[in-house]
């Protein structure tokens, strides 16, 4: 060790401590798996080896002197010694060849390794672990799980509290607002692809529509207006969608979630895209529980 080397190593240490501090402050487990751990190890290796070895040679400018037998040639005043290879360099070179052999024949055998196979194993292992831990997840667990999915996948448009960011997207704190009900009655709806088919426009109008809107937006509490009969023929007298034949207009039930995530619905930002390819059935269930909890 010499002074230069120590300074360089101190710099490396500061860099690594800063890196680890930032990562840990984001709640990331550095030892979560071999990929995270090897990356940190690799980063440390880069910093430490470069600092130590380059400064070892730079220090020789202080401590050593040039020597050796000069070659006969001379180019524009530049000479050349016939010194031997530095042994550390030569052995390391050999070492990397051996490592490359190991990597290609044992680590990731060129004739056998498959990254898709490894992916399948990763997914399988995850599913097994998930099954055993959360086989009979209770309501509270599902809600918590749903919340974290919501924050990652939904909150951009629907807001972190699910309020729809002042009308940019569906407000989950209520099933429907009065304006939404009126809009739907006026324009009809056919985006969710329920078995009952599309809802025609202008099923009600004027005072009737107004009455229905207030009733539905209020969570269908109190006395049912007579004009609701036209709605009840499809959505049921209780508004629960006749057992999955049409949308539930009282709450965000599981069937509604399935249809909403799989089809495109109109909002102010855009028609809500389909998330069929990104949300698994378990996640859908968790999201349902969480979104229902928002409306209460």
């Amino acid at each position: 060790m010499n002074g230069l080397m120590i300074k360089a190593l101190v710099f490396s240490a500061i860099l690594m401590i800063a890196t680890i501090y930032v990562v840990m402050s984001l709640d990331i487990d550095i030892f979560a798996d071999s990929i995270n751990a090897l990356t940190m190890g690799g980063a440390i290796a880069i910093a430490v080896l470069t600092s130590a070895i380059s400064m070892k040679y730079v220090n020789q400018m202080k401590t050593d002197t040039a020597s050796g037998e000069l070659a006969d040639e001379n180019w524009d005043g530049i000479g050349e010694y016939k010194n031997e290879l530095p042994s550390g360099w030569a052995y390391s070179f050999l070492g990397t060849f051996i490592w490359a052999m190991w990597y290609g024949f044992f680590g990731y055998p060129v004739n056998a390794y498959s990254q898709i196979g490894e992916y399948n194993e990763e997914v399988l292992a995850y599913n097994e672990k998930f099954e055993t831990v959360h086989k009979d997840a209770d309501e509270a667990t599902l809600k918590e799980m749903g919340e974290s999915i919501f924050l990652v996948q939904c909150s951009q448009c629907h807001g972190v509290t699910g309020d729809g960011l002042s009308g940019r997207a569906q407000d989950f704190t209520a099933r429907m607002t009065k304006e939404q009900v009126l809009y739907t009655i006026e324009h009809g709806a056919n985006e969710l692809s329920y078995p009952m088919g599309s809802m025609p426009p202008m099923m009600a109008s004027g005072k009737d529509a107004e009455e229905i809107a207030i009733y539905v937006a209020g969570g269908m509490k109190g006395e049912q207006p007579a004009s609701f009969a036209v709605c009840a023929s499809c959505h049921g007298a209780d508004g629960k969608g006749s057992a999955g034949m049409s949308p539930d207009i009282v709450s965000y039930d599981g069937t509604l979630m399935k249809h909403a995530l799989g089809h495109r619905r109109k909002g102010r930002i855009c028609k809500m895209p389909s998330f069929k390819t990104l949300i698994t059935p378990v996640q859908e269930k968790a999201l349902t529980v969480y979104i229902q909890s928002l409306a209460n």
Binding site: C157, I269, C270, K271, M272, S274, T277, L278
Partner: peptide
């Protein structure tokens, strides 16, 4: 699979408003 024509329209016009 998971974005729509009108989303892109709004987003390309002003990305930081949508995201």
């Amino acid at each position: 699979n998971y974005r729509t024509t009108d989303w892109h329209e709004n987003h390309m016009f002003n990305p930081s408003e949508i995201v």
